[in-house]
Design a protein around this nucleic acid. Structure first.
Lengths: 208, 208
DNA sequence: TTTTTTCTGTTGCATAAGCAACAAAAACAT
DNA sequence: ATGTTTTTGTTGCTTATGCAACAGAAAAAA
């Protein structure tokens, strides 16, 4: 059975005390990735960013999360001494639980743990797909290839040569890990050379 | 219970007919990522590469796999029209099964499916960690930061300022998605400026 | 409304990093 | 042992891309 998150949550709220649901306002810290042993979070509504401060104090937005995405320390056991935390972009609702707990202790007790457990692999798989997609784009060697790779994916998903960007150009540059102004310049070249058309956040692919 | 892969396989080989185990010689194609609906593979021994040929015919090694790593079409539902396949680097043993099958059909039937199913989330989580690590490195903006980031991770894992590289410098450049000669140049600078020491594939960090 | 903040768009300049090409060393195969 | 392939190491040249700095548009807040 495929997990219907909304349905699940409705049932969960009435019955289960082990999982925690919390609300956050814009800019509040949802969780840090230090010493929260095997915590998993599901973003139920709103959006949030995974933010890193490295040893020199530079801030990076590592990931953006939106509805039904997973995050938490389990996913990010990277051996660096950076500060990592998740911060709300807008008002958020978040479901917290312990992965270890879910897997080993509460199995027999709670029906909702059961359902979640059964569907956890699916949820994580979605995440793997997102990560693989990003790696596919990041490994492209030029800004042009990164942009076109991203546009191709959006176009295919939309069954259309025309689509709108899911986030701002500033965020896109960040997602592709390139300089924003360099990206804007490349976008201009792509327009001038007739590869794409763009007005507002609507893009149309003109090739192939 | 944590999955002991070797123990599991020993039992599996005697008892279960649903999962398939196959052997491959160097350079043989293990699987393609087209129309193998929801296939998962576990590499039991040897090593293999995920190879991509894009529309212009360029070859890229997308991922390297080694013992106990997962791969397969489930993980890589990216909307591009590239050819993707996994090729043995050396002699390999690979376990094949269908994710859908595992989750929905064989649950009650086979004890070994059970065990595998219970531990699948863990195995996938390991993969998520690997992917996150790679993204962390790929998003760094300079070759220097990528190299030092990678070295820091190895150093931390090894509990030592000295460690050996897990693969060749050629492969490292590929993993970090940078030009090999540019990487060699940067390594030289790092040596000259006293950040690292290097002989053979042994690296020592000299800072902090 | 007005003010403030964020996002978009553009450009000049400097340089990091890609590319090409080669030779020596090491690893592998015959 | 000898040839073959892969890896390492290096360097000159070129350019793609990062950086800084700015102004106008759009969005958010007051």
């Amino acid at each position: 059975m495929k997990l219907d998150m909304d349905q699940f949550l409705y049932e969960f709220e009435k019955n289960c005390s082990k999982l925690q649901k919390k609300s956050f306002k814009k800019d509040e810290i949802i969780t840090t990735y230090i010493a929260k042993r095997h915590q998993i979070c599901i973003l139920l509504s709103g959006s949030a960013d995974l933010v890193r401060y490295d040893s020199t104090g530079n801030k990076t937005i590592v990931e953006h999360f939106s509805k039904n995405e997973l995050f938490g320390e389990v996913f990010y056991i990277v051996a660096t001494n950076n500060e990592l935390f998740v911060k709300a972009r807008q008002s958020c609702e978040v479901l917290f639980f312990s992965y270890d707990n879910l897997k080993h202790k509460c199995k027999q007790n709670c029906e909702f743990h059961q359902i979640l457990n059964e569907n956890l692999a699916d949820l994580i798989l979605d995440k793997v797909t997102l990560l693989n997609t990003r790696i596919e784009l990041l490994t492209k060697r030029s800004i042009r290839d990164k942009i076109l790779g991203f546009f191709t994916i959006l176009s295919t998903r939309n069954f259309s040569k025309t689509f709108s960007l899911p986030f701002s150009l500033t965020d896109l540059a960040d997602y592709l890990s390139i300089d924003r102004s360099a990206m804007m310049r490349e976008l201009k070249y792509l327009k001038d050379e007739g590869f794409i058309k763009k007005n507002g956040n609507k893009i149309t692919l003109l090739y192939k």
